[in-house]
Each structure stands twice: as C-alpha cells, then as structure tokens.
Design a protein around this nucleic acid. Sequence first.
DNA 1: AAGAAGTGCAACCGCCAACCG
DNA 2: ACGGTTGGCGGTTGCACTTCT
Length: 224
Amino acid sequence: MGRPPCCDKIGVKKGPWTPEEDIMLVSYVQEHGPGNWRAVPSNTGLRRCSKSCRLRWTNYLRPGIKRGSFTDHEEKMIVQLQGLLGNKWAAIASYLPERTDNDIKNYWNTHLKKKLKKLQSGDSCLSGAGELFPAMLSKGQWERRLQTDISTAKQALHDALSSETADKSFAGATPYASSTENIARLLKQWMNEKPNSHNNNNNKSQCSSSTSNNRTAVDSSCSD
DNA sequence: AAGAAGTGCAACCGCCAACCG
DNA sequence: ACGGTTGGCGGTTGCACTTCT
C-alpha cells in the first residue's frame, strides 16, 4: 500500500502566492495560531496544500523574519555552523532566528558555496578568508570564535523574543517585519503594479508581481 | 537594441520522524 | 506494539530578473 499524498492533488493550486492568499493565511494564523496545517486549506478556503501553507507561513509571512542581504556576521555564523553541523539548515537557522532555513540554504547554495570554491581554487583576491572559512583557521581559534558567535546569536535570539513580546510594533523600528507589515508591503506593491498585470492576469503575471514585490520589499527595507 | 547566459530565490517534492488512537 | 497521519526537513527545480556579449 503506497503512501497517501499529503493532500488531494486535484484542484490544489500551485505556484507563487498572491497577496489575497497571503492575507487569508495570515488572518487565519493570527486567529488560530500556527499549527494544524491540515485544517488550514478547508478552514480558509485556500486551494493550497497544507504543506504549502506551512511553508509560506514559516518562510515568508511569519513575524520576525529579517529580509534583505546577509551581514558579515551572519555570513560567518552560517559558514562556521555549516562546517560544524553540515547541511542541517534548520539547526543552523535556530542560531539565526530572524532567518529561515530556506533563506540560509539558498544563501549557502548561491553565495557561500561559490566563495568557498573560489578560495579553494586559490583565489587570493578574497581577503579575510580565514575569518570567513574556519578551515583556514587553527582548530583552537575556530572553536573560540564559534563559541563567541553562538553566544552572540543566543543573545540576539533573546533580544528578539523579548522585544517581540514587549512591543508588538517593533517592526517599524527594526529590520524585522511583522506578518501584518509583510502583507501591507506586498499589497501596496501589488496595487501599484496591478495596472500592468491587468493585461496579462495569468499565473506568470502573478508570479512576477509576487516576486518583484518581494524584491522591492527587500530593497526598500535595505535602504531604510 | 536584442538575445544569451548567469543569478537569485520562492516554491515543490519526497523522505523521515514524531505523534496519536 | 502497531499503523496511519501530520509536520518538518533537505534537495531540487522553475522562472523572473540582471548582466554580459
């Protein structure tokens, strides 16, 4: 007997999420809390797989997600933790609470892997190689730095959690964004770009809209 | 200016482990 | 103890966007 599919494949929508879907998901989660993802599609009317809902929430809509480019410190943390833990992205992400495992995985695959490859092929133009890649440090140095970085990350986690509970409006003052903020930004951008998509209102235009919204949001949050 | 190639990232897929009756 | 269900994770893909020729 084969494994049953996680959801009914017939009638399940795939592809990029629209702002309307995001709003439905966020309002549901805000009311009921995350969890019981199985019930989300039926309760919200979303024609999405439960997994897709969970993924969208954890990787994009969840409050406290920091978007935009990675800092040097984050980069170092990822490299060091990857060296220590391997491709355990969820474990690595637990040390960088404002980043999702998917983000870290993407960043590793698209940026850091290449950097490492360059370094290993003897490209000397990259300064600070030892700082970034622990294999180039002595074990003792590397362990001391890792300890320091983990402590810093733990402190950051503590700060992030306490500020979240203490002040729900923290999103405006920090690079972190609440889900409401995320949605608001998406919607704003989407409305701005809607005239263009009217001519071509298919899946791809939604994707383009959604993706570019995201990029714009990232850019604007960076420039802030 | 236009097409090709490269890049970045959101989302999907399949497997695994924990949970529950 | 066991089997089914669900959530979580890591690998991979698809496609929009950017840069190069």
